[in-house]
Design a protein around this nucleic acid. Sequence first.
RNA 1: GGCCCUAUCGUCUAAUGGUUAGGACGCAAGGUUUUCAUCCUUGAAAUCGGAGUUCGAUUCUCCGUAGGGUCACCA
Length: 431
Amino acid sequence: MHIGTVRTALFNYLFAKKHGGTYFVRIEDTDKERNKEEWVDAIWRDFEWCGLMPDKRSRTSEHLDRHRELLRGLVEKDTAYVSSEPAKDDPERTVELVRLRNPGKELTFDDLVRGPITFDTTELGDFVIARSIDDPLYHFAVVADDGDEGVTHVLRAEEHISNTPRQILIQEALGFPRPVYGHLPLILAPDRSKLSKRKHGASIENYRSQGFLPTAIINYLALLGWNPGTDQEIFSLTELIDVFSIDGVQKGGAVFDVQKLEWFNKEYLLKLDSHEYQHMVRNALPMEIAELPQFDEERLQRLLPVIRERVHTMKEVAEAAQAGEYDFAFAAPHPDADLLKWKKDATAADAIPRLQRAAEILHEADFSSAETVKDALWPYAEEIGRGELLWPLRVSLTGRKESPDPFVCAFIIGREETLARIEKACDTIGR
RNA sequence: GGCCCUAUCGUCUAAUGGUUAGGACGCAAGGUUUUCAUCCUUGAAAUCGGAGUUCGAUUCUCCGUAGGGUCACCA
């Protein structure tokens, strides 16, 4: 499902809930050629995942008998007629198309987001409404179904604005009531073209597979082309129902900004309870991490919270793991002597006494949390200068120039391993 | 091209016929326990152009300009 479809669904959902209506989605599968059962299944699965499952659903293809009956009625009344003409794809062949007798008048409808919109329908001519009595086209089927299914409000994408007059014409021919139409602004790519699934990966599946949370996507999408009139940005679906108003819907198209989505995702990641969060990270972590020499469940358990504030999405977790950012937890590094050298040190060897003193302290320290490790080390760090101790210590434990702070690292790997790595670092420098 | 829609920081947007044009993301600088991240503070950054109405317009009107949608025997 296209991300734009999700937003359209969201606004329909919010509008319906806000007004005590029924949130209704119809699969418009008039074109048999272009429909596959698994696509329809995928659509419902996406709705489910987003938390936007409709109150009521239907499918155009199930109403064929009724469409035939309605079409016959129009032809009998002579508001539509069957016309024999050469087939478009093969001019040798003759086909019989059903065309609407267009009264050719000026027509105005009151758009829920844009106000009155006027068209001259003359230019539409006697447009085709069915390939045959048995084969209605989209415009006809939609109007017939809307009427039969009691649709009162239609919220759809802006690209349908110019379809609306022809649908109203069919409606009037059928004698069906006119629903209220509202056309939502388009979601745009950074170059301001229409956001496309193929070109821009704008499918919900794409974002799901990157590890975005449905709650974050919904929240972001709600604010794309709508605003509550306050500075609040974080909304649950229920809160959205509460504050939603169609007046806050923007008229112009909105550029989809992944960075802002990522920000929302991080916010929602931070809100997750630790069970949900752990489940996600475990799935995102590559299998290879379990093959690291010191891998064990307790260390993983201590590492997990550290990951959370450093990533926006689960894809980033996988990438960071791939880049070896979490390896320190399960494998002793081979620290580089140059890296171990604090910027004020003349040579790396200057750091050895400080590391040795740290080892002495840690030998006695309480390793029950990162905090207690810090409490043990802190007075000495203050005494000699923080960077002097903290930099070489961190490099000893992780071998990297970017990592969580040394107290956290020490806590994750435990006393024994911490002392072993400090010793190893001193050896490295000594050689 | 015809018809239709739209126009505030890079992006999403707020606001009023009179404001230092506000917020968020991103960006930059500084700070918070060294690095990364988090967090905090500060900063740079916008009313498409031209007429008109008005004491005054970013806001109202018109004309341009730009962008978008649509012109099917697709949906």
